[in-house]
């Protein structure tokens, strides 16, 4: 159910007054959108998505007094969700890197991990159970999104899955329009590679670089 601007204003006022019922209404209304967005931004890691989605709403409740109404409430909530996901992706990336380093240290000199051999830890997330179970679309979503660099994934999800216009993506991400388009360009190209790999029954390779090579197009 979409609220009219007047209904939304009333809801925001009630939230500002600390009305618990209004908070529940807000969560009910946006839970599916936020959960799906967060789930996709975190490459279908369900446990993390559930945790982050809750964090998003707690932040909304805590920060509602600062919401000036310059944008739509849904845009503001999207912005909070995107920021939380950026932090979680950074954390997951660091954790995975540490594990990978630990694995390599442990196996240093081992002939079993020669050049060209992919460490099983690189493929640890989202996990085989997520990638190889479920229907075709679900399997593709998990594998394809996970293969994208988080910064490209963010734009691909907002544009291709959420169907948002560029202006709103700029508002949500705080990026310049040129950067948004450039990241979408790279993201789409990576998606194409992921699709071709998926069609051949292969797992797409992941972009694990710290910074994507895109700014400057």
């Amino acid at each position: 159910m979409n609220l009219t601007p007047d209904q939304e204003r009333v809801l925001i006022e009630r939230l500002r007054r600390g009305d618990g019922r209004a908070f529940n209404e807000l969560v009910r209304q946006h839970q599916s959108t936020v959960y799906t967005l967060v789930l996709r931004l975190l490459s279908n890691r369900r446990e993390d998505a559930l945790d982050v989605s809750q964090e998003v709403f707690v932040t909304v409740f805590r920060a509602i007094a600062d919401f000036r109404g310059d944008s739509r409430l849904s845009t503001w909530i999207h912005r909070i969700a995107v920021n939380h996901c950026r932090n979680r992706n950074k954390y997951l990336g660091r954790r995975q890197e540490r594990r990978h380093d630990a694995f390599e240290d442990k196996h240093e000199g081992s002939s079993a991990l020669g050049a060209g051999v992919v460490s099983p830890l690189r493929g640890e997330m989202p996990g085989p159970e997520q990638v190889y179970e479920g229907n075709e679309a679900e399997r593709f979503v998990a594998a394809a999104l996970d293969s994208l660099h988080p910064e490209h994934r963010e734009i691909v999800v907002l544009r291709e899955l959420e169907g948002l216009p560029y202006e709103e993506i700029v508002e949500i991400t705080g990026l310049k329009i040129g950067t948004v388009k450039s990241r979408l360009f790279r993201g789409r190209a990576a998606l194409e590679s992921a699709y071709l790999a998926f069609r051949e029954g292969k797992r797409p390779s992941r972009d694990t670089s710290e910074k994507p090579k895109d700014e400057g197009r």
Partner: peptide, 26 residues
């Protein structure tokens, strides 16, 4: 390839959080 990739992504559709999500958030 790009169109098929996007179409597959969209086919996954929206997801619903667990039943007691509102309570969990509260």
């Amino acid at each position: 390839a790009r169109q098929r990739a996007v179409s597959l992504l969209r086919r996954a559709g929206p997801e619903r959080p667990p039943k007691h999500f509102v309570f969990m958030v509260a």
